[in-house]
Design a protein around this nucleic acid. Structure first.
Lengths: 339, 339
DNA sequence: CTGAAAGCGCTTACAG
DNA sequence: CTGAAAGCGCTTACAG
């Protein structure tokens, strides 16, 4: 079945392509009669405008590129879901690419998306990414760019984030208020801003409550896995027998840590209280259930798309806009891993 | 920064657009000198061909549509990852849509992808999908279609699957060989072929080993969640005190079931042995670790893309091809939830 | 109210 | 070896 063209519609109706085109798009200067004729024929012939031609004329494809560090990841897949959900609502399609936490890939993928002429780009940075020049090329190409979760402070574009520092503060303060005196922290990798911010929040809470900050109690996780949780838990209790609280930058690592601690005979939360991060669906299923910070992935995806959509419209109207930083709310979810 | 065109390259060089175009594409009938000139200028001017124009001319966009029931799902997100990984290798981009297990959405999304002129469609059916006429429209539009995991037997297109029946058989037989006599099955929803096949494998294994099949021991899960696992486990031990084995059609449900059974004082595997399905990464982390069937999601994604890529090339060469059914290997992963 | 014309930026068959 | 021309299928400013 060959797709049918406007030309064919016009021909069978004995009118011009221009009129047919305008009729379908409800131009006011086409007679009602012609409009009905064209629309009916289009419907019966199952006409679909050739999107390649439309793209070429209108210079937009209603397609947004998305670069994500890792698809197989509860939080990120929720973000993707939110983006796709919102995009579909607005008639946009999402092309997803995975940087695999690699700076080189991320850079290449930006080039790729730009060469494919997406209308804009949504990105969450790879853990490896330190240099952010490649993001500037997006802006130079005059395409809207919105970063989310793993952002680069230096880049002047809209961002959707949570307040990681505040969330880290809340988590740690909750441990302090539960009576913990020696609180360890399993932080994320060194580069990403959100790992830094959560760590800052941790420090700030200690300071506020007059607990001394001990750098030896901070362990840096790199692959953010369950195994890393068990590994550092083992290390932690070897090195610091007096620890009574633990703030972990991800639920998965926290669950790994709890598994190991239980195995070694520690009672959670009696001996060591634990707070995770992100509110992974399993955190309410494990034993004990995990106290954590709820990080709204789906909402973040929706917000990121909404923002790029706004910017797209500003551009169409040739209006200027100033990049916005949207901060989504987090919440402490109190469960059984803290007293 | 306005994107630069072939026209501008040709103008600055004082040659025609045709020659410039052919030079860039290494046509043999262009002088080496001209080729170098054009290529160098293109490089310094950072020329990128306008993909909209290329699409219109070549009638292909090197873009494949993907419809998946649920993105936030360990198995499916692995499949997506595999598809995107393989597609990127071959210069293709993936547009992902989520049907949300809804037949209506799935149907609409096929129309959408077709109207956006993707070169082909990859799909895994929604649990709700019974009628498969909408898939035929893809074929009528002359676009390659490859189904994976949740397939429709009736549709004549290539498919990538595992042998669900055999896997169900293996899982059940493993329980039987472990000494189980009364084996229950938590199956998936009624419509998807793979839920049916796993159930058939279960029945077949019982028959083969002369155990009577008792329909009362089969429970149908619909949302495939942890909670469903706890719910049916509760029901199971109320209704059938003599059960000593359980084959569950997903690891998450199995883990839910085990959590509930442990809570009620049952020993796993001593009282009830449990086998899951899919080899979710958490199945090696829970206590006891879960015996399961490894279902290669990433491989499935790669295979699905490879197949559609092949079909795309056959079409370009105007060769015919017959749809293939690719069966990927599964394996029993023996862990501690079976003796 | 309708249509001829130009043009989006490329590719490719054809002429020279 | 080079280039003029046609054309992919639309949209839209303009003329009538």
């Amino acid at each position: 079945m060959k797709p049918i063209t406007l030309q064919e519609i016009a021909d069978t109706l004995g009118i011009s392509v221009s009129t047919a085109s305008k009729a379908l798009k409800n131009y006011p200067d086409v007679s009602e009669e012609t409009k009905t004729l064209v629309k009916e024929l289009a419907a019966t012939m199952n006409y679909m405008p050739n999107s390649f031609a439309v793209n070429l004329r209108t210079k937009e494809s209603k397609t947004i590129g998305l670069i994500i560090p890792e698809i197989v990841h509860y939080f990120f897949s929720n973000v993707i879901k939110g983006i796709i959900y919102q995009a579909e609502k607005k008639g946009y399609l999402i092309i997803t690419l995975q940087s695999n936490e690699s700076y080189q890939l991320e850079k290449k993928q930006i080039e790729l998306l730009l060469s494919k002429n997406v209308d804009g780009i949504l990105i969450s940075l790879a853990n490896e990414t330190a240099d952010v020049e490649h993001l500037k090329t997006i802006i130079e190409h005059n395409k809207p760019l919105v970063m989310f979760d793993r952002i680069a402070k230096k880049i002047n574009c809209s961002k959707v984030v949570i307040n990681d520092k505040k969330a880290g503060y809340t988590a740690t303060e909750h441990l302090i208020e539960s009576g913990c005196k020696r609180i360890a922290h399993f932080r994320g990798p060194l580069l990403p801003q959100n790992a830094i911010d959560r760590f800052q929040g941790y420090k700030q809470a200690l300071k506020k409550h007059n607990l001394t900050f001990d750098p030896a109690l901070v362990y840096t996780c790199n692959d953010m896995s369950f195994e890393e949780g068990t590994y550092f838990a083992k290390k932690l209790i070897q090195e610091h027998k007096d620890v009574d609280g633990l703030f972990v930058s991800s639920d998965l690592i926290a669950i790994g840590a709890i598994t190991e601690l239980k195995k070694q005979g520690f009672l959670i939360p009696e001996d060591i209280a634990v707070v995770g991060f992100s509110n992974w669906f399993m955190s309410s299923a494990v034993t004990p259930t995990l106290t954590t910070i709820d990080q709204p992935g789906f909402e973040m995806g929706k917000a990121a798309f909404k923002q790029i959509f706004k910017e797209l419209n500003f551009r169409k109207k040739k209006e200027t806009y100033t990049p916005k930083v949207i901060k989504l709310k987090t919440a402490l979810v109190k469960r059984d891993s803290t007293p």
